[in-house]
Design a binder for these strands. Structure first.
Ligand SMILES: [Zn+2]
Ligand SMILES: [Zn+2]
Ligand SMILES: [Zn+2]
Ligand SMILES: [Zn+2]
Lengths: 147, 147
DNA sequence: CGCCATCGGTTATAAAGTAACAGGTTCCAG
DNA sequence: CTGGAACCTGTTACTTTATAACCGATGGCG
């Protein structure tokens, strides 16, 4: 996962510095969306000088390059699970959708073409040129519904 | 608009108190989404004792009863423009969509059935039981695209 | 070397949201 | 009408989330 990020950065002339790489690793190893300050606490374990700007700057980079997404409803960040699957990352970041389980906190990333199309059509009908889309559905995941 | 809210509250046994009514008025008269603290500043002009809880509690009530919506991407609130059109308000609040112009800041409220259906289908396909949905599209509105 | 751009450390502050308690009001059962 | 429960608001203090501004270090490049 991190190696793929190295490769993607090399290909785009972006610099996945040790700090950025470490933050990406922390986000990826979190089973749930992780907040910037939780990330900061983890980061402090190895970087005593870490402060909010440290983590926010790294997150800005990772967001910009599509390695992580922000879940707006949670003010938290998730690693992109399709970053290594050959999508157009830039586009993906603008159209990704999340299913957020309100019980266990699990977040699943989707990229459903019909959702995207329906939104694009609705926007066009209103004379609106769509850009970045935030689509987040709160509900109950399969596992929690069974239990 | 406010009169309609009075009527809706009376019909549901909810109490649209002077404070809540005033906050709703402030949200409705704002041409753009308005943040809680901007709201607080306006509120202070007539209520010297207003503090964050004052406005957040009023907003909680207004959100719960569907008179306003929160735009997650902006941490700001908009008056519901369809609250008086006989929709099922409770359901509406869970499925409303926003088109947010990044240039002029204008926000248009939508409730597109095909978007909702596409999302419900995508969620079901993942074994997910959907609840409240956040759908926000950032882009350029018709007016700004022309200019 | 001297210059520029990028990165990250550091301090401070802004913006957004909540907890907890106290006093007042409304409303209904008795 | 009285007493208590539920609700509403004032008030203080605090937490969480995010950004501004400044600085030195690093590294490429003419
Ligand atoms: Zn992704
Ligand atoms: Zn779950
Ligand atoms: Zn609405
Ligand atoms: Zn516009």
């Amino acid at each position: 996962m991190l190696d793929a990020a190295d490769a993607a950065c090399a290909a785009h002339g972006a610099r996945l510095t040790p700090l950025r790489r470490q933050v990406l690793g922390l986000v990826l190893e979190s089973p749930q969306p992780i907040g910037a300050y939780a990330l900061l606490d983890r980061l402090k374990e190895s970087r005593s000088g870490a402060a909010p700007p440290t983590v926010y700057r790294a997150l800005d980079f990772l967001l910009e390059h599509g390695f992580v997404h922000k879940v707006e409803r949670l003010n938290a960040f998730v690693g992109c699970r399709s970053a290594t699957e050959g999508h157009d990352h830039h586009d993906h970041a603008h159209t990704v959708q999340f299913l957020i389980c309100g019980r266990c906190g699990h977040v699943q990333e989707l990229e459903d073409a019909s959702v995207r199309a329906a939104l694009a059509k609705a926007a066009a009908h209103a004379g609106f040129t769509p850009g970045r889309m935030t689509v987040e559905v709160e509900g109950t995941c399969r596992d929690c519904a069974r239990g």
